[in-house]
Design a protein around this nucleic acid. Sequence first.
DNA 1: CCCCAAAAAGACTATTTATATCTTTTTAGG
DNA 2: CCTAAAAAGATATAAATAGTCTTTTTGGGG
Lengths: 141, 141
Amino acid sequence: MMELTRKGEYAIRGIVYLAGKPIDKVCLLSDIAAAVDVPPTFLAKIFQQFSKIGLVKSFRGTGGGFLLGRAAENITLLEVVEAVEGPIIPNRCVVTPSDCERSDFCNVHPVWKRVQGEVRSVLEGVNLKELASKERSDINN
Amino acid sequence: MMELTRKGEYAIRGIVYLAGKPIDKVCLLSDIAAAVDVPPTFLAKIFQQFSKIGLVKSFRGTGGGFLLGRAAENITLLEVVEAVEGPIIPNRCVVTPSDCERSDFCNVHPVWKRVQGEVRSVLEGVNLKELASKERSDINN
DNA sequence: CCCCAAAAAGACTATTTATATCTTTTTAGG
DNA sequence: CCTAAAAAGATATAAATAGTCTTTTTGGGG
Ligand code: SF4
Ligand code: SF4
């Protein structure tokens, strides 16, 4: 349960790789894909999504490639994940309580809200700079 | 992302309903299903899983039905969810780091461990007695 | 012993989501 | 105008989800 998809995993790998490069280094999709071990065509789709919302900047044609859209420390893991996976929704009633006519009196409902809050909070507390750094942020795996 | 399946949602509804009944009241599957608005055949499958691990007790034949396997206050939401959805796994590397040869140096890995811990902790902090009570546990939805 | 009620077990189906790949088009540099 | 590279769109396959249906087992009561 609650499993990140391949798409999400690949998205993170790709953008973290970018975050580890100099801010002005334009990277080829093919290079990124090879470096992070992701099917290039799949990563292309993912980076198109990133590009649309400005998480990365893209340049076409000769000498083209990708750059981070903002400074790495200003991009949270939450943004990256939600960009490709959609919002964090432990149960549909957290987004539209009206879907379930039990939501008025349901004691489970607030629990899912709490789960959502906790997960978002963890992911929001991590930025791409930390993720890209060579220093292992956490000793205890 | 991280969405509970119908199966999980139905499972919770069903067992919370049981938890709201007197401890010795044997409930018919058909009654439970009707009360919590779940397809009876689907709920049957779910309760079979519960029964196998002792979360509920079942009785066959005339006068048969279901009882809670233990006192409601001793069953956590985490147990219920994991019984039908499997363990809480935000990313496969949290269970088998060896799957990913990047796990040694990956800074994302510990984040997923943290997410897992937070979610489990929230779900473990809620028991069926609370969920079944008429009092709305949380004012702020 | 026979009938009926109810859960258990297993096979089967349809729909949706995930995981890609392939082809064509657009953009840009030299 | 040729080539490099991303964007867009169509297609394909596999797996998971969300059920249903049928048959079997178990137990109680007449
Ligand atoms: S029953 Fe409660 S938890 Fe389930 S969908 Fe409705 S409001 Fe949400
Ligand atoms: S790259 Fe990191 S987060 Fe992704 S699967 Fe490997 S260890 Fe886990």
